[in-house]
Design a protein around this nucleic acid. Structure first.
Lengths: 166, 166
DNA sequence: CCGTATCCTGATAGATACTG
DNA sequence: CAGTATCTATCAGGATACGG
């Protein structure tokens, strides 16, 4: 919560804090669909093919199709053609830099859910690939070392949970 | 703590809810509506009264009403009766601890939007109230000092953006 | 098998009208 | 003023069916 003395400044929010104008609203417009979120999550988990998205997100194929087109249109995901030997050319879907930058959003959501919905620890742990140390998102005032990049993240399944997605 | 109503709600929604039961999916179920996000944002900005939510979020009154009920049912917001002298008792809405814990989610969204949608800096800065140092959300492996609490955050309006730009 | 178009259901947002 | 019920438009999600 914001300190009282700033409420004066904040009072006339109409100038800048309008529903459709702030960064958060805009971001939410792009990520408004739940499928889009889930697809991005799977991207971080290493999924790159259509079929796998469908399976991992447990969404329908049309929903995944829509989400991928949406995410591609907004520059969060790119379609990369690839070809397995003996097969025809297909597309795979990878996060752009902008997409990778969404990792803190995802992780903070996971953290919140783990704490307040799962009653503690969730099924997944995130670990810095170099140091092996637990990774999390938090409010900081200083740059603590170079911040970890999404490329450098290892995802570990906690022992007590059966499935990755449960 | 915030568990029972959640589960009921999630069970009801299980018919159409996708993505299984990971923390992120569950969190998204609770925050899926855009109005809910905006209401929470306004809570952090110091808004606590119905009318102000309606004005600040630019959502319709019914939407705000629904969002507040939803958020109250899920333990993110509580209704607190209060009385101004000479007026009748009303309710105001405040974030619970669970609600305050959503701050990193909000801030990471704002950060992402500022970087990738606003092309740089957005209209708001977040500053540690004690040290006055810029505050942000990032991936960390170690606890950098005691992490800043949402109570301790100052929000500053950046000088250059006066408009609801882009 | 990969991906999309189509159609239907269900959920959310706004406008309106109503209560205390 | 502080909310809520209702109605309707719109949009997301799934089932199905269809083309590459």
């Amino acid at each position: 919560m914001v300190a009282i003395e700033f409420e004066d400044r904040l009072r006339d929010r109409s100038k800048w804090s309008i529903g459709g104008a702030c960064s958060m609203s805009k971001a939410l417009d792009l990520l408004s669909t739940k499928t889009a979120f889930l697809v991005i999550r799977e991207c971080f988990y290493g999924t790159s093919r259509f079929e796998d998205f469908v399976e991992c997100t447990q969404a329908s194929a049309p929903a995944v199709s829509r989400a991928l087109r949406q995410l591609e249109a907004t520059g969060i995901v790119i379609r990369v053609p690839y070809q397995e030997p003996g097969k025809r050319v297909q597309d795979e879907y990878r996060l752009t830099e902008a997409g990778k930058d969404l990792f803190p959003v995802l992780l903070s959501l996971v953290q919140w859910g783990d704490k307040h919905l799962q009653g503690g620890r969730g099924p997944l742990s995130f670990v810095d690939a170099d140091s092996g140390r637990p990774l999390r998102v938090d409010l900081i005032t200083e740059i603590a070392d170079p911040p970890t990049r999404p490329e450098n993240i290892e995802i570990r399944l906690n022992a007590q949970s059966r499935r990755r997605s449960s």
